[in-house]
Design a protein around this nucleic acid. Structure first.
Lengths: 223, 223
DNA sequence: GTCTATATATTGATAGAC
DNA sequence: GTCTATCAATATATAGAC
């Protein structure tokens, strides 16, 4: 018989992940974590040699969650690559709304709380950022023929993350979804201008838009 | 004779402010703070009834520092209201460069570390954000005649903060100024498109730009 | 692998002399 | 207002039985 693999480690990581998200790293004690996980101190230290070590495992978990928990649910809503980008942003909006703008991006939180104090932690945070941007960049690549030729899609994908993180920060600070919606709407406006530029370029001197090419975007952000 | 006002309180707030900026709130102990301030535990508790209370004083200090430490040094570099906006952003770039992308925006750090756990803290963070945006908005108002009439300048000012905070977060996460510069460059590109739109509107059907109207912006971000 | 019990250090905060 | 001394609670981490 195969030995039954314990899920204790997984339970601990999951408990830590949730508590770090809600309370932050330093504000969460190991006692809270193993109590929430339903195990004891000894089990935690059997799997992790320190709190920092557990944090690294949490950041690894987020690496694994990017596609199943963030990208795939958003991509399922639409096949249009540009709309997929904004569908991802809509997913974060949903989290903000469901928590009364109290919970934000767990990676962003840890990035600013821990800064550069723990080198391995910072590296795993950078990896999470890089993977997120790569996923967005793949959408932009799929829409490359609708964007101006000189657009740097890797940089544009980082700009999407910039707007997302900056918008979430202000939404939480004001406990108001407005700043997030505004940021997304202005990013949308920027995209529309890029798409329109490309259409002008492709169409030569013609500048009239074909009906249906520029759908209106209901963001819920307009007052 | 007037009683000499002690600067002990000020020294404590200043020490706390610096330590919170570098290490974060929870990672900084009161012992570190009063040691750095050169005073003793008793003095700290004479002026502040708790660590949270001291944090509120730190956030008040940032409110007072907005103009002398952030806006005025940036505004001194140029009279052009749009350039002033980007001069403020250049100021944050300077801090990133001087610290090897280790230190970010102290308000943003506290916003994400503390979230909504302490109501009064969140309110003072919101006030800091609001004042920052109002200062930027005053620049946009001064350039109102160069922006499209339908631009919401309050929202655009929040977008500037969004890009700043999101860019700093990624710059710190990657320990690389690149993502910050890219974000600012893309914000600049967005502004250029807004200014160009206004110029088209004002000029009627004419679309050629007058030489000198669109200066090239050296951001140092281009690879 | 999981448990209980505990070590050791540090935390935020207080008391009371001066 | 500032000091020293110290409390009580909590933190991370360990030891060793099972």
């Amino acid at each position: 018989m195969m030995p039954v693999k314990s899920d204790t480690r997984e339970k601990i990581v999951e408990a830590a992940r949730e508590l770090f998200h809600v309370q932050g790293f330093h504000a969460t004690s190991l006692a809270e974590i193993f109590r929430k996980a339903g195990v004891n101190s000894g089990s935690l230290y059997y799997f992790f040699k320190s709190k920092d070590d557990l944090l690294l495992a949490v950041l690894d978990a987020y690496v694994g969650l990017l596609w199943p928990a963030v990208m795939e649910p958003a991509f399922r809503k639409t096949d249009d690559p540009i709309e997929r980008v904004f569908s991802v942003l809509a997913g974060y909006r949903q989290m903000l709304m469901q928590t009364g703008c109290k919970l934000g991006c767990p990676i962003g939180n840890l990035a600013l709380e821990l800064g550069d104090t723990k080198p391995e932690v910072r590296e795993k945070i950078a990896l999470n950022f890089a993977n997120w941007c790569r996923a967005i960049e793949s959408c932009l690549d799929a829409a490359a023929d609708r964007l101006p030729a000189d657009v740097d899609r890797a940089r544009l994908s980082r700009f999407v993350l910039t707007v997302m993180e900056g918008g979430i920060m202000q939404a939480r600070g004001h406990r108001d979804i407005g700043p997030y919606d505004d940021g997304v709407a202005q990013l949308r406006d920027y995209f529309d201008r890029l798409l329109a530029q490309r259409r002008r370029e492709a169409g030569g001197v013609r500048q009239d838009t074909r009906p249906g090419d520029l759908p209106s975007h209901k963001t819920g952000a307009e007052s």
